[in-house]
Structure formats: structure tokens, C-alpha cells
Deep mutational scan, measured.
Amino acid sequence: PDLGLTQLFADPNLIENLKKNPKTSEMMKDPQLVAKLIGYKQNPQAIGQDLFTDPRLMTIMATLMGVDL
């Protein structure tokens, strides 16, 4: 199971919303991170391994779920 990750990354406004959010806007200036996020739309399971190697993803996930870290 993808634990709902498919829906989190399926939002067509995902990148724009993250660019507008004060907690994630600075991160979204990294083209490699943006490319990763776009890739998760097609393969949400890929985030599982990346969560352990890129701490920014935890902040992004929390933001998408509405959790304040």
C-alpha cells in the first residue's frame, strides 16, 4: 500500500502550492528536489527510500498533510 501518498502527490498544483508555502518555498528553488517531487506523481513508492536520505521530504510531507512540525 502507498499509505495515501498517491493522493498527496497527485495534486496538479503540488509544486506551485509548495512554492507559495513559507515552510517549503526555499526548498522549491532546488531543481533536483522539484524533479523528485514530479517523479513521485508517477511512482509514489519511490519516496519511501528518499525519506531516509533527504530530510526536506519529511517537511514537505508534513506540509502536504497539514501537520505543523
Rank of each mutant, 00 (worst) to 15 (best):
P55K: 14
L14Q: 03
L64N: 02
K19I: 09
Q49F: 12
Q49Y: 07
S25K: 08
A62N: 10
N21H: 07
D30P: 00
L14S: 04
M61H: 05
K23I: 09
I38A: 10
T63C: 05
D2G: 10
T24P: 00
A46W: 10
L57T: 03
P22Y: 05
N43A: 05
F9M: 08
A35F: 06
K36L: 12
D11M: 04
D11A: 06
N13M: 08
G39K: 13
F9I: 07
I15T: 02
N43V: 03
N43Y: 09
Q42V: 11
Q45Y: 12
K41D: 03
D11R: 04
L14K: 01
Q42W: 07
K41C: 08
D2L: 14
K36I: 14
A62W: 07
G39V: 08
L64T: 03
I15E: 02
L14H: 02
V67N: 12
L51G: 06
T63G: 04
P44A: 08
D11K: 03
L37W: 01
P12V: 09
S25F: 07
L69K: 02
K20I: 08
T24R: 00
D2Y: 05
F52N: 07
N43S: 08
D54H: 02
G4W: 09
K29E: 14
L33M: 03
K23D: 08
G48H: 15
F9D: 01
L8N: 03
K36Q: 09
D54E: 04
D30F: 01
N21G: 03
E26D: 11
I38P: 01
M27T: 02
N21V: 02
M65H: 04
I38M: 15
M58Q: 11
K29D: 11
N17G: 11
L37I: 14
K20R: 13
K20L: 12
L64W: 03
K23T: 08
I47T: 04
K41M: 15
I60Y: 01
Q32A: 14
Q7A: 15
M28T: 02
N17P: 01
P1I: 10
T53K: 11
L51R: 04
N13Q: 14
L57N: 01
M65V: 07
T63L: 07
L69R: 01
K41A: 14
A10K: 10
N43G: 04
D68N: 03
M61W: 15
T53P: 02
E16N: 13
F52H: 12
G39T: 12
D68V: 02
P1M: 11
D2Q: 15
Q42Y: 13
L51N: 04
D50R: 01
K36Y: 05
I60D: 00
N21S: 06
T24H: 05
L57M: 10
I38R: 08
N17Q: 09
P31T: 12
I15A: 02
K41E: 05
T63Q: 08
F9P: 01
M58F: 09
Q42A: 13
T24D: 00
T59L: 13
Q7F: 05
L64P: 00
L5N: 09
G66Y: 09
P31C: 05
T6P: 08
P22G: 04
N43C: 05
L33A: 01
I60T: 01
A46S: 10
V67E: 14
T24F: 07
